[in-house]
Design a protein around this nucleic acid. Structure first.
Length: 536
RNA sequence: GGAGGAGUGGCUGAGUGGUCGAAAGCGGCGGUCUUGAAAACCGUUGAGCGUUUGCGCGUUCCGGGGGUUCGAAUCCCUCCUCCUCCGCCA
């Protein structure tokens, strides 16, 4: 998220940055919105100051027993109160609207990020190792299946496409690779190992930028709809009880009559809402009040009615009705989870809404986690093999730094990821992504691509990004400098170190032997307990 | 899942309608004293927003949101989190 004050002071630069992104947003409308907000805040503050002043007078007058003075002040405060409330509401609306407009805006990229449309325009920064010349090189699918240790059919049976089942030494190889990477990052590079939850809430995903714009890429795991529907039913119940209490027999009778309709339960719930919230005596305002009613002796009767609608097949309409009637009671958070697409989300959000001390920085964290991606929109791409899975494991690196250290940290982090490949003796090259290929939240991204003899090309195995303060502002993650009063935003960086599944692909294809067995890379031998993976 | 309890400043903890952003203690910072340190004593010590060249001033924030009231940390509603007991469970 961008700093609106920065946008205001650098409109031309902001607009130019958006153009490079191919985004439509321009500064003018944002600045206008913020100016209106600031004016509203000022008016609100002034009104509040006045109201507070007068209220204090009342307190003092009452303390002295001067009823007449108290009464006079009391009358004075009435108009002020209404004005404050109105301005408060307006301010809240404007602030929310501003945030809503800022959240989908991508980060500003560094000036030296090369112009380009897609990965073909990425710039190679360096390469390491020489791609192996392997005669009649086989790809990892061929190798893995021949070993009888990689089973896509079994995965399709128990889950679906874009999943894989690994067995025996390949299952173990996944574990060995992850262990090797974690050991390297924790023991030699100073990263702290973390084992975070896999399900995350929407706030976290907003913090790192997956939401609100890229929900399609995520798997959801939530019962929010069901839970909310349950609450909606409770509302219906209370409305019915209210009808009873107010002796509104017409409405009540109508509700009961309709309870006989069982084929289309949605319709029943719907109609009840129509009646209770709009029909006859019940206004929208009344509906809000109904929520406060308690029922007692009528409960049993109401329950009989409810038993007929509680199996409503589609509850979406009830939910939306409920949302209209009682928005303040609606919470998106109710058991609303996402399967985490990358540990960048969990690790980075550990510092959300916190103020760190300067000595704690840089804060370096690493985690081996399962990652889940819907891969919506990539139908047909990389359908063969383990390159693009709905579920894969990754060792992630996250650094939290001061603003002046983030560039240096970015290079360091990329070096940590490269070191994994060096020690596995896998040839790679490092790319600076072009404007068209750089992700939403990144100011600058390095991709590391490993050479795959089976495909005869380099493929992405790591992506290291500096988001600068972009995520920190979304998350309100700050630090305080020694001796300074005002906290400021940290910089956040993330990188894969590495994608474990793709590393396995690289190992298989690079270490394959003519007989179809796989030589175990030296650094993995202690972890694998053998020198060769072969069909057993 | 059922029953009950609790959320106050970096920490502990007082405050149950009125000059309360909030007692007290601890911790932190500054000072006095001391050759130095400790102890003692004195002072100081949250965040956001707005405004100001700056000192400052205004306002909001006592888990989140909403409400009652001229006025809310305090009363009401709701959500979240944590704790205890029972049940279930890897």
């Amino acid at each position: 998220m961008h700093d609106i004050r920065w946008i205001k002071e650098n409109q031309a630069a902001f607009d130019r940055a958006m153009e490079r992104r191919g985004a439509e947003m321009r500064s003018a409308s944002l600045v206008a919105l913020d100016e209106e907000r600031a004016a509203t805040v000022k008016a609100m503050n002034d009104a509040q100051a006045e109201q507070k002043q007068v209220s204090k007078k009342i307190g003092m007058a009452k303390g002295k027993g001067d009823e007449a003075a108290a009464q006079a002040a009391l009358e004075e405060v009435g108009a002020l109160k209404a004005r404050v409330k109105e301005l408060e509401e307006r301010e809240r609306e404007l602030a929310a609207q501003l945030r809503e407009e800022l959240l989908p805006i991508p980060n500003i990229m560094d000036d030296d990020v090369p112009e380009g449309a897609d990965e073909a325009d990425n710039k190679e920064l360096k390469s390491w190792g020489t791609p192996r010349e392997i005669e009649a090189a086989r790809d990892h699918v061929d190798l893995g299946e021949s070993l009888r240790m990689m089973d896509f059919e079994a995965a399709a049976k128990i889950s679906g496409s874009r999943f894989v089942v690994l067995k025996k030494d390949l299952a173990k190889l996944e574990r060995a690779l992850a262990t090797f990477m974690l050991n390297l990052h924790t023991e030699e590079f100073g990263y702290e190992e973390v084992l975070p939850p896999v399900l995350t809430n929407p706030e976290s995903l907003v913090g790192t930028g997956q939401l609100p714009k890229f929900g399609e890429d995520l798997f959801e795991a939530s019962d929010w709809l069901l839970r909310s529907a349950h609450v909606a039913e409770q509302t219906v119940l209370k409305a019915l009880t209210a009808a009873i209490k107010q002796k509104d027999l017409l409405t009540f009778q109508a509700i009961v009559d309709n309870s006989n309709i069982t084929e289309d339960d949605t319709k029943v719930v719907d109609e009840i809402y129509e009646r209770v919230t709009q029909g006859g005596k019940f206004t929208e305002e009344d509906a809000g009040k109904l929520l406060e009613y308690e029922f007692d002796s009528e409960k049993a009767f109401a329950n009989i009615f409810m038993s007929e609608v509680q199996f409503a097949k589609s509850r979406a309409k009830a939910v939306s009705k409920y949302r209209e009637i009682a928005p303040e009671k609606w919470t998106e958070r109710t058991n609303h989870f996402y399967l985490t697409p990358t540990a960048e989300v969990t690790l980075t959000n550990l510092v959300r809404e916190s103020i760190l001390s300067e000595e704690e920085l840089p804060k370096r964290m690493t985690a081996w986690t399962q990652c889940f991606r819907a891969e919506a929109g990539s139908a047909g791409r990389d359908t063969r093999g383990m390159i693009r899975m709905h579920q894969f494991s990754k060792v992630e690196l996250v650094s939290i730094t001061t603003p002046e250290k983030s560039d240096e940290e970015h290079e360091r982090m990329t070096g940590c990821a490269e070191e994994v490949l060096k020690r596995l003796d896998l040839p790679y090259r490092t790319m600076l992504l072009c404007t068209g290929d750089t992700g939403f939240g990144a100011a600058r991204t390095y991709d590391i691509e490993v050479h795959l003899p089976g495909q005869g090309q380099y493929r992405e195995i790591s992506s290291c990004s500096n988001t600068r303060a972009f995520q920190a502002r979304r998350m309100n993650a700050r630090f305080r400098r020694e001796g300074e009063k005002k906290p400021q935003f940290v910089h956040t960086l993330n990188g894969s170190g590495l994608a474990v599944g793709r590393t396995m692909v690289a190992v298989l294809e690079n270490y394959q032997q003519p007989d179809g067995s796989i030589a175990v890379p030296d650094v993995l031998k202690p972890l694998m307990g053998k020198d060769v993976i072969e069909r057993g």
